[in-house]
Simulated scan of single mutants.
Amino acid sequence: MNLATNTDSNSYGFPITLTAKAGQATNKQTLDLGGLKAINTDSDTVTQKGLGSVVASAIDTNSVTNLIQTLNATLKKSTSGTLQYNWVYWDPSNSSDTKSGYTSKQNLTNASDLTNSFPNRFNNQSNFVQYVEDQTAAGKSVAIQFRIYDSANSKNAITTSNRAALTIKPITAQLTQVPTAFYFGSIPVSAAANGSNGQAVSAVTTNDNQIKIQNANRNWSLTASYTPFTNQSGNTLQTILAVGLAGKTTNLSQSATSVASGNSQTSANYDQNVTASLQFSKNNTAANIKTDSPYTAKVTWNLTNDTPKLSSASN
């Protein structure tokens, strides 16, 4: 049982049914063997509570505490040792690769001791959490297990929990709305041909000229680019398209240009109005500007989550 991985977040291990008979009476009792639920959580929960607290909620507290007390009573009679423990985990790409987490420096007296001193590499500030997030995003789960030892003879574990699947869903910023269109209206050929005398033409503001980002209290960057203004005949105009977002004005180009960014200090729901202005290059000439159809350009917005991804856990 201790070699199998529990993937059920509702059961403390694996169900086993015991049957007892007394005369003509028969009684059946189903128990969970192993002591550890599977853990399905997300990065927000781990950040708020700490991974130790999340794991603690997956331990069969009463049963494990009774087990520890029984083992302590046995040790007092048989050895001079004390109960200690460690946590181990398995890389899902190599089931035989056991990686040690941490050996306790205190006597183990109850179930809460298993996570009260949860190791740094297993908490929300460590590379381990990022490693588990990466595995979860790849459709894999890391298996964890606690083992209990007699400090006087710590070569082999006295007992272990079952292995339990650990998945941490990474929550990332998501771009949910961008402006539908910027409409600059009718512009005289003379204005476009002489660079509009250095004056920018503002876009008409509409209710849907907004950028909306969910889970924005993370590291992210938003870029934008635009194609040349072109009409149906294939004629193009040389322009400067600028967007204003959250008090910052940025001139766009055909390459992706950063227009906004966020971090843990950003509001979780980023909702900002976007303005746009257009200037014309003096390289445009009246003879080359065709008025047989409107000129349009396409703006492309791209949100990138900047949290670094790690290929493996840090030991």
Rank of each mutant, 00 (worst) to 15 (best):
M1Y: 06
N2K: 13
N2S: 12
T7V: 12
T7D: 12
S9Q: 08
S9Y: 01
T17L: 06
G23C: 06
T26W: 03
N27L: 10
T30Q: 14
L31N: 10
D32Y: 06
D32C: 06
I39Q: 01
N40Y: 08
S43G: 05
S43Q: 05
G50Y: 05
A56M: 08
S57A: 15
D60P: 02
D60E: 11
N62K: 06
N62Y: 07
N62Q: 13
N66E: 14
L67W: 07
T70I: 03
L75P: 05
Y85R: 03
D91Q: 04
D91T: 04
P92H: 09
S95A: 15
D97M: 11
Y102C: 05
S104M: 03
T109K: 07
N110E: 14
L114R: 00
S126H: 11
S126I: 00
Q135P: 04
K140M: 05
K140Q: 14
S141K: 09
V142P: 00
A143H: 01
I144V: 04
F146E: 11
Y149M: 01
Y149L: 02
S154Y: 08
S154R: 10
T159H: 12
T159V: 07
S161F: 02
S161H: 05
R163C: 09
R163W: 05
T167D: 07
K169G: 08
P170S: 11
P170N: 15
I171A: 05
I171P: 04
T172S: 13
T172Y: 06
A173G: 08
Q174H: 12
Q174T: 00
Q174S: 15
T176C: 14
Q177H: 15
F184G: 14
G185I: 04
V189K: 15
A192T: 13
G195N: 06
S196H: 03
Q199G: 11
A200D: 06
V201P: 09
A203D: 13
V204R: 13
N207C: 03
I211F: 05
K212T: 04
Q214Y: 05
Q214P: 07
N215I: 00
N215C: 06
N217M: 02
W220L: 02
T223Y: 00
S225L: 07
P228T: 01
G234I: 11
L237I: 10
T239W: 00
L241V: 14
A242D: 14
V243E: 05
G244L: 11
G247F: 10
G247M: 14
T250Q: 05
S253N: 13
Q254L: 04
S255P: 13
S255W: 00
A260N: 04
G262W: 02
G262E: 02
T266L: 00
Y270K: 01
D271K: 03
V274A: 08
A276C: 14
L278I: 10
L278R: 00
L278V: 12
Q279E: 09
Q279L: 07
A287R: 02
A287C: 01
I289W: 04
T291S: 11
D292C: 09
T296P: 12
T300H: 07
W301N: 13
W301C: 11
W301D: 11
N302R: 12
L303N: 07
T304E: 02
T307S: 15
